[in-house]
Computed example of a mutant assay.
Amino acid sequence: MRQADAGTSAREATRPVPTGRSGEAATSTTATAPAKSAAPAQPATRDEPRASERPVTQQAPRPAAVATRPASARRVRLTVSRIDPWSAMKISFLLSVALGIALVVATVVLWTVLDAMGVFDQVNGVIGQVIQDGGTEFDILDFVGFTRVVSLSIVIGVVDVILMTAIATLAAFLYNVSSALVGGVQLTLTDD
C-alpha cells in the first residue's frame, strides 16, 4: 500500500499544472511536498477592500541611519586654469585701498605716541649736544612734523594703490598665459 502511495505522489508531482491559458500546461519535475499542505488563496471578502481601492497612507519618515564606520574625508583635486583679470583688478584695488588707509592711520597713531612719550624732545637734545653750535638750534620737527609725515604717508598710500592694482592685474594676465602653456595650479581640497 505504501508503494502505491509513493507512486501516486510521484505521478502528481510530474502531472501537468494548468497555467490559466487554454491548451498550455507547465510541468514540475521536483516534488517538495504534497499539494494538500499548501493553503489555497482566499478571495477578498466584501468587508476587505481590494488593493486598488485601499487608501494610500503616508509612512512616517524613518530616523536617520547611524553610521557604523567613521566617515572619511573626501578629497577633490582641482586645477585653477584661469584667473579673470577684471576680478583680480577689483579685489587688488579694494585690498590696496584698505592697506593705504591702514598705513595712514598707523602713521598718525605712531607719530602721536612718539610725541606723547617725548621722543622728539630727547632727539633734539642729543643732536644739539653733538652739533654744539651755539647760535643755531636744531629742531627735528622741522623734518618730521605731523603734517609732513601724514602727507608723506598719504602719497605712499596712493602710490601703493596704483602699483598693487597694476601688479595684480598684470600677474593675472601672466598666470593665464602660463597656465595655457603648462597647466594651472592644482589644489587638493578635503571635506572635513
Rank of each mutant, 00 (worst) to 15 (best):
I156D: 03
A116S: 12
Q132T: 02
V97M: 13
L103E: 08
D115E: 09
S179F: 06
V130R: 00
L152A: 09
L110D: 08
T112H: 11
L152K: 00
V155M: 00
T107C: 11
V130N: 01
G145D: 06
V177Q: 12
G184A: 01
V158C: 02
A171I: 07
R148S: 07
V97A: 13
T136I: 11
T147H: 01
A180Q: 13
D142H: 02
A116G: 05
R148P: 05
V159Y: 05
A102T: 04
D139S: 03
V97F: 15
F146R: 02
G145S: 11
V97I: 15
D133M: 06
F120L: 03
L141K: 14
T107F: 08
D142N: 14
W111D: 01
L170V: 14
V109F: 12
L114W: 06
V161Q: 03
Q132H: 08
V108F: 15
L181K: 06
L141A: 04
A166Y: 14
I167R: 09
F138G: 04
D142K: 07
G184N: 02
V144Q: 02
S178A: 13
L152S: 04
Y175K: 02
G134E: 09
D142E: 07
G134I: 07
Y175Q: 03
N124F: 11
A106T: 10
L170A: 12
L114N: 14
G118N: 10
V113N: 04
D133Y: 02
D133W: 00
A98Q: 11
D139Y: 05
V150S: 01
V109Y: 09
F120D: 06
V119T: 10
N124E: 13
L170S: 08
A116I: 03
M164D: 05
I131W: 14
V126I: 12
A168Q: 10
V109E: 08
Q129C: 13
L95C: 04
G134P: 14
T136C: 08
L163S: 01
V182A: 15
V161S: 01
G135H: 11
N124G: 08
G135R: 13
L94N: 11
A168V: 05
G134F: 11
S151N: 01
N176T: 05
S153K: 00
V123W: 12
Q122T: 14
D160E: 05
A171K: 13
V113F: 04
I167H: 02
I131D: 01
V155N: 01
E137L: 09
M117E: 10
D121K: 07
V113A: 15
G125D: 15
V108G: 12
